[in-house]
Structure formats: structure tokens, C-alpha cells
């Protein structure tokens, strides 16, 4: 074995020990995350903390409870854009919202909401389709710092040109500038969009379902999981949906890991929108 290969296998052992510590001390289970991504995040965390090896962080993790937040934040740094993949939002608007309109109250769950970009994109769409006042969006994430940022509704003004372009491509009916107030270098989402959102801590790896949802949106979270955890999360989404409810995954995610068959109908292959099947529900026709 060459020196570099030896170093890599030692590093893998250090990561395994770190994972064990995280699980034994705090109940956070990252064992079912894809290893390659996880390893890069562990290395980034090591550099951020300023130690020379991953194992040096283990005693800190055991004895310093404050350190846990730094670790969780470092291990779930997911960030996204408002209206990322605009066609998906256009599809939700044109094909899914007309069905949601038939419900007197609409419950939506954004699972793994990161810093809230998809939550507010959804809120803007609901507002434009006049559904927001009877909607409640449940936004959850495993990272408490993410949730705080999301709840603040503040994002950097630098992002506005990208978000504006995405918003227009998603069939925006107004001007994107209607949906934030600019102050110094930041933009803040107005209160009427934020008041229909409830933020909660939730860990897809260990927590259970918490309500009957009409739409579950979980985009670019499953790509971080191994097949076993993907299956678990998909079961959780299935159990959390009303009959005929909708599931929207990331454009590079699928139901392949889901061990139950014939439980969902595929509505859009590109947008990865699925409908929960049940004998008394006629599924929608497939769209692009």
C-alpha cells in the first residue's frame, strides 16, 4: 500500500470513529449518508476548526456540547437558489396547484428546507395563485442554524439577479422585486409570505411523520443518502401524504430506492413529480 493510500484508509477510520461519537453522544446518525460527499464535508470541517486530523475533533465533540452545532452546521451546508430549476415550479403552478385549489385548507411540507429558498419560492407561487391564505407550509431541516436563517427571511442582495431570472422562467406573474424589501446589502421577505410558514427541527434519518400533507417537496436531499436511508425517507413521505397527494423530488432524484411498488404514479419525469395512488383516486395525466 502506498503512503497516500495508507493515509486515506487511516482517515476513513477516523471518520468512522467520529460518526460513532456523534451517534453515541448525541443521537445524530450520519452512517447512511453517501460517503464521498460526507468525507469532503468532514475535511472542510477539519479545516474550519483548524485541527490537523479528524480524530482531534473527537474529544472536543465528546466534552463540548457547543461544538455539536458547529459540527451539524458543517455537515449539512446544503444551499440552493430560489426557483432553482424554474421548469419544476412552472409545472407545480400549472399542473399541481389547480388540484390543490380544490382543498379548503392546504398543507405543504418542505423537507430539508436548508436556508429557506424553496420555502419562499413556494410561498410566492401560492400567493400568486391566490392559495396562500388557506395554505400552511411546514418547513423542516436537521440543521438548526439553517432553520434560523430560513426563518429570518433574509437573503443577500447579490442573489437578486439570479432569482429574478429564475422567477420569470417559473412563470412569475409580477416583478420579483415585489417580494423583498432591500436594506443595505440584504433583502428580506415580507411578513405576509412568512406568516404562512412554520419552521421545525426534523431529522429524516430518525424522526417520524407529522401530518397529512397535500404536497411534500424534498429536493436535493435524497442525493446525500444511501439507498437504505432514501427508502426510509420515501416511506416517510408516502405515509405523510393524503390520498392523491403529491411528492416533488430533485430533478436528479427518483423513487428507485423505494421498495414498495405501485404506490406512486409518475406525473413528470423531468420535474420528478409523483402522485400517491389509492383505489379511489384517479391520478393526473403525465405532463412534461
Amino acid at each position: 500500500m502506498s503512503e497516500i493510500e495508507n493515509n486515506i484508509s487511516l482517515e476513513n477510520i477516523e471518520i468512522e470513529l467520529f460518526l460513532q461519537t456523534l451517534k453515541l453522544c448525541y443521537g445524530y446518525d450520519y452512517n447512511n449518508y453517501n460517503f464521498a460527499s460526507f468525507k469532503r464535508r468532514m475535511r472542510a470541517l477539519k479545516n474550519k476548526v483548524g485541527v490537523s486530523s479528524i480524530s482531534e475533533m473527537i474529544p472536543i465533540l465528546i466534552h463540548d456540547k457547543q461544538f455539536l452545532e458547529t459540527v451539524i452546521d458543517g455537515l449539512s451546508v446544503t444551499m440552493t437558489d430560489m426557483f432553482r430549476d424554474p421548469d419544476v415550479f412552472l409545472n407545480l403552478r400549472n399542473n399541481i396547484f389547480p388540484v390543490l385549489k380544490s382543498y379548503p385548507r392546504i398543507k405543504l411540507w418542505v423537507a430539508g428546507c436548508a436556508t429557506g429558498e424553496e420555502v419562499y419560492s413556494l410561498a410566492i407561487l401560492l400567493h400568486e395563485e391566490k392559495l396562500l391564505s388557506r395554505s400552511m407550509i411546514y418547513a423542516t431541516d436537521v440543521n438548526k442554524k439553517n432553520l434560523e436563517i430560513a426563518e429570518s427571511g433574509i437573503f443577500s442582495l447579490d442573489k437578486v439577479p439570479d432569482y429574478t431570472r429564475n422567477y420569470q422562467a417559473a412563470g412569475g406573474k409580477a416583478s420579483f422585486s415585489d417580494y423583498y424589501h432591500a436594506r443595505y446589502s440584504n433583502a428580506i421577505i415580507p411578513e405576509y409570505l412568512r406568516e404562512r410558514v412554520v419552521f421545525n427541527h426534523h431529522n429524516l434519518a430518525v424522526d417520524t411523520c407529522f401530518g397529512e400533507m397535500h404536497l411534500v417537496m424534498c429536493r436535493n436531499v435524497l442525493i446525500y443518502f444511501n439507498t437504505e436511508l432514501q427508502n426510509k425517507a420515501l416511506n416517510l413521505f408516502y405515509d405523510s401524504l393524503v390520498r392523491g397527494g403529491f411528492l416533488c423530488l430533485g430533478t436528479k432524484e427518483s423513487l428507485r430506492a423505494f421498495t414498495q411498488t405501485d404506490k406512486f404514479s409518475t406525473l413528470s419525469n423531468y420535474s420528478r413529480i409523483y402522485q400517491k395512488l389509492s383505489p379511489d383516486v384517479i391520478p393526473l395525466k403525465e405532463f412534461d
Partner: peptide, 8 residues
């Protein structure tokens, strides 16, 4: 196997 992520 391939794996994808949306890290920064």
C-alpha cells in the same frame, strides 16, 4: 458508483 451533490 456515481453520487451527486449541491454543495457550494
Amino acid at each position: 458508483s456515481f453520487s451527486l451533490n449541491i454543495d457550494p
